[in-house]
Each structure stands twice: as C-alpha cells, then as structure tokens.
C-alpha cells in the first residue's frame, strides 16, 4: 500500500515514515502542500495522511482543491486542532477520516487500512469469518449452523468488526463507527460491550473469533 504523508514537522514526518514502513506501508513524504501536489503528479497513492496547519495553507483547502480536480484518493486529516467542529470541517471538505495528535501509529495504521479497503471493496451483503456467517441485509448471525441472537447495537458492532476482518480495530474507531461518539468516554465502556458480544459469539465454541489485541484494540479473525 502506498501512502503519502504531508506533514511540516520534520521529526514527526520521519517518525511516521519509519513507523508506517514498519507495519508494511510504502511511504512518501511531503513537507508542504506544494510538495504534495508535485509528488502526486508523478506517483500514485492509495491513501494520504494530511496535516492541517501547513506552512503554505490549511490542509482542508487542499482537500477541497484536489476533490475539485477529481482526485478520489482517501484522505486522513491529522491535526492538533482537536475540536469537534474542526473535525466536522475536515470531513465536510472531503476528508475521509480525522485523527487528533497525538495518536498511536497503531491507530493511524488501522484507520489507513480501513480507508484503503473501503475504497477497494464494494459493500458486502454478507460476511463469512470461519464458521461465522453474518447476513447483513437480514440482520442474522449464524455460527456453525446455530443462530445467535444479537441486539441491534451488538449486530452493528459485529458488522463493523466483520467488515474489517483480520484487522485491528481500535476502541476509538468503534466509538465513532458504532456509537457516533467523537470523544473518549472516561471509562472504557467499549470493553464491556465487546465482552458481552464475545459471550454470545464465542462461548460454547472451541476456537474464539473475537480477539483482544493488547494495547491496541480488537480483531475479528479465524486465528488469533
């Protein structure tokens, strides 16, 4: 996967480059919007990581510009401006995701994977993970021929995890996608929801499907 990181702080830029390299991304970097434009003219990218406050302008305006030019590459906006409204501005301008500094590279990588994959695959009507079958249209879940009854929110949680199957999904990603929350609650409420889902999904079966990835988040996969 090819990612373009547009960030004016040299240290953060290099850090992002080496860290994202480490988890399997091919990374190009740009220190300004002008450089980004030049790099994009000669290379193709799967996803762009864009800082907001750059020496030659606001990243938001850059997104609007490239969208007008017909560029559809997903953009993740990165910024220290952590206000809700800034986030809304970013998404409205055509950004696909928004991450507030500081962030874990794990969180960034997980979100980039989701963005790239969302573009690549058409929305599925059903998802199969091992012996688990999720009928998204019919809102039904069956594991090894046995129907599992889920509450609407539990289904939404499972659906999101299944769409990112085999990938790490962080707590903040879940809060955003499943509950529409743009802030971290004081207590880790997501864990409780996950453990309830896990009870219904995995208890009584030999191999667990819903895994906790320590310090990172969760993953729905056949193997741990």
């Amino acid at each position: 996967m090819d990612v373009l990181v547009v960030e004016d702080d040299a240290e953060t830029r290099e850090y992002l480059k080496s860290e994202l390299n480490g988890v399997g991304f091919r990374v190009s970097v740009a220190g300004s919007l002008l450089q980004a434009q030049e790099t994009m003219a000669t290379n193709s990218f799967d996803v762009i990581v864009l800082d907001r406050l750059l020496p030659d302008g606001d990243g938001i305006n850059f997104i609007e510009r490239i969208r007008l030019q017909g560029v559809t590459i997903p953009v993740l906006v990165l910024s220290a401006l952590g206000e809700v409204r800034h986030r809304v501005d970013g998404l409205r301008a055509g950004g696909d995701d928004y991450l507030i500094k500081p962030f874990d590279v794990i969180e960034l990588a997980a979100r980039l994977e989701v963005l790239v994959r969302r573009v690549a695959s058409a929305p599925a009507t059903s998802i199969q993970v091992g012996d688990l079958f999720i009928d998204i249209l019919g809102q039904r879940v069956v594991r090894a021929g046995k129907e599992i009854r889920l509450q609407p929110r539990e289904f939404k949680l499972l659906e999101y995890l299944a769409q990112q199957r085999d990938q790490v999904v962080t707590r903040t990603m879940l809060l955003e996608a499943v509950w529409g929350l743009t802030f971290d609650p004081q207590t880790n409420v997501v864990d409780v929801h996950i453990s309830r889902l896990r009870n219904k999904l995995d208890s009584g079966f030999d191999s667990p499907l819903l895994h906790t990835v320590r310090g990172q988040g969760y993953r729905l996969a056949e193997t741990a």
């Binding site: 953060t12 850090y15 480490g22 220290a80 401006l81 500094k101 962030f103 590279v105």
Partner: peptide, 24 residues
C-alpha cells in the same frame, strides 16, 4: 490558546512517539 495548543501538543506528541518507538 490555539497556537499554544498546536505548539505544546507537537513536542508532547513527539515525546509520545519516541516512547512508543522505545517501547517496541
């Protein structure tokens, strides 16, 4: 305040990143 947020959070983010790297 806006500038302070940006200016202070950047070095703190760096510190956070260095610690993450050290950790791995």
């Amino acid at each position: 305040a806006d500038n302070l947020a940006h200016d202070l959070r950047t070095p703190l983010s760096r510190l956070h990143n260095r610690l993450m790297r050290l950790r791995s």
